[in-house]
Amino acid sequence: MAGKKTKSGMISHGIAAQNRKGRFNYTILETTEAGIVLKGPEVKSLRLGRATITEAYAAERDGELWLFNSYIPEYQGGVLSRFDTRAARKLLLHRKQIDHFLGAVSRSGSSIVPLDIHFNDRGVAKVTLGLGQGRKKEDKRHAIAERDWQRDKARLVRSKGKDY
C-alpha cells in the first residue's frame, strides 16, 4: 500500500491493490492503463487500500472489457448504499485498444491480467492491464532463481559498501 495518505488514512495517489501473482504466473508482453467504472463507496473503500485482485481477470462481455472477480469490500464509513463486493466492473478503453487486446487473446491464446489498481495524480482510479502468456513450471523456477540472485547480489553490494 504505497502512496500519499490523507489525515483520514486514505490513499490519495499510488497503488490501492496489487496482483503480485500475475507477474509470476504470466510473462507480461505489454501493459496498458484503463479507467474503471466505480460507485462512490467503492472508491472510498479503494482509497483505504483494502481491495484484492489476486483472483481477478479481465474478459469481454458485449464487445466491452470487464473486470471480473475483483474484491472491493464494503465501505464502513456510515454510507447506507450497499454494493456487491465481487461485481463485474466495466473497464474504460478506446475501441482500438479493446480490439487489440481481444485479437491477441483469440489469436495467440494470451490472457488479460489485471496487475494493479492505482490512483493517478488527479486522484482517478485506474487499472493496469497486462497482456500475458502463461508460464510453465520450469519458467517459474527460473524466475525464482533470478529473483533470489538479484536479492543476494544487492545484499553483497550493500555489505561491501559498509567495509570501506
Rank of each mutant, 00 (worst) to 15 (best):
G161H: 13
A51N: 13
F68S: 03
T128Q: 06
K140L: 09
E33C: 06
V37I: 01
R107G: 00
E60R: 07
R135E: 08
G63M: 00
G3P: 09
F24K: 15
F83P: 05
T27G: 05
I36Y: 03
E138K: 07
K4Q: 05
K153D: 00
D121W: 15
V43H: 03
N69C: 05
G103Y: 09
S111V: 06
S70L: 05
S108Y: 15
Y71W: 05
I36S: 01
L80G: 02
L48Y: 13
N25W: 13
K162W: 05
L48V: 08
R141I: 08
K137I: 04
P73A: 13
L67K: 02
F119L: 07
K126E: 04
V37Q: 06
M10D: 10
I36D: 01
D62F: 10
N19G: 00
M10I: 10
L102S: 01
L131M: 07
S70M: 10
R86S: 00
A154W: 11
L46T: 10
W66F: 12
K140R: 14
P73W: 14
D99K: 13
L46I: 07
D139Y: 14
G132R: 12
E60T: 11
G103S: 06
G103D: 09
Y164R: 11
G9C: 04
A2H: 14
L65Y: 04
R141E: 12
A51Y: 13
M10N: 07
A145V: 15
Q97K: 09
F68L: 01
S12Q: 15
G134L: 03
G40E: 12
R158T: 01
A16M: 15
K39L: 10
A16L: 13
G49S: 12
G14K: 11
V37P: 02
G109E: 08
K137Y: 13
I11A: 10
K162R: 12
L67E: 05
I98T: 11
G22D: 12
D121T: 06
T85H: 15
E42G: 05
R135T: 03
K162D: 00
E33S: 04
L80H: 05
I117H: 04
K39T: 01
D99A: 09
R122M: 08
N120P: 13
L65T: 07
T27N: 14
R151G: 03
K5Q: 07
S111F: 08
M1F: 11
H118R: 12
